[in-house]
């Protein structure tokens, strides 16, 4: 390896020795529990999802409709208080085929995260969700999609009240 050292002294650690606790370490788990207040805008959004409606909010200064709705226009910093029901259709802005799960398992059939620009919202405003009822290889940027909802009695005011977005031929 060098002029002075030809071999390392001692024996290397193996993974098994670490696994068997022969290398000292401390393990622990943080009791971190949180309950986030949704507030006015996101509260309205989630209540809408429970009713099967996607709400956006409108900024009269910027003439922009954003989704998810917010109480603050991030561009002009004016308050927003007009909530607009939007369509549950839109187009795929971007997507990916994800071959590793939330809990870090390899999968053969990929998950399909996508941002869907919602019809009725200003361009570049959309919902982060998943695609379904489609072959992963068939998904295209710009593809038209429509929300597939949980049944009314199963909805609970959460982003998961929409199961996924599926391909949709109808024009807006």
């Amino acid at each position: 390896m060098s002029d002075k050292i030809s071999t390392y002294p001692g024996t290397s650690l193996s993974e098994k020795e670490i696994r068997d606790g022969k290398v000292l370490s401390i393990q622990d788990q943080m009791p971190g529990k949180f309950s986030w207040d949704t507030g006015i805008a996101i509260g309205k959004y989630l209540a809408g999802l429970k009713d099967g409606v996607i709400f956006g909010s409108y900024c009269a200064t910027c003439r922009r409709t954003v989704v998810p709705p917010r109480t603050i226009c991030e561009w002009c910093f004016q308050p927003m208080d007009r909530y607009i029901p939007l369509e549950d259709t839109g187009i795929v802005n971007t997507f990916s085929l994800c071959y590793v799960t939330w809990d870090v398992r390899r999968i053969k059939e990929p998950e399909t995260p996508a941002v869907i620009e919602i019809d009725g919202a200003s361009s570049l405003h959309g919902i982060m969700h998943k695609l379904g009822e489609v072959e992963p290889q068939e998904i295209k940027i710009g593809m038209r999609v429509k929300a597939v909802w949980k049944s009314a009695e199963m909805r609970q005011g959460a982003i998961t009240d929409i199961l996924y977005f599926k391909p949709h031929e109808g024009s807006h």
Partner: peptide, 19 residues
């Protein structure tokens, strides 16, 4: 407790007043 506001809305109210 401030169940009426998200943390973002809480911050916004303070920011608007300060500006």
């Amino acid at each position: 407790v401030t169940p009426e506001y998200s943390y973002k809305e809480l911050m916004y109210e303070a920011a608007r007043r300060a500006y």
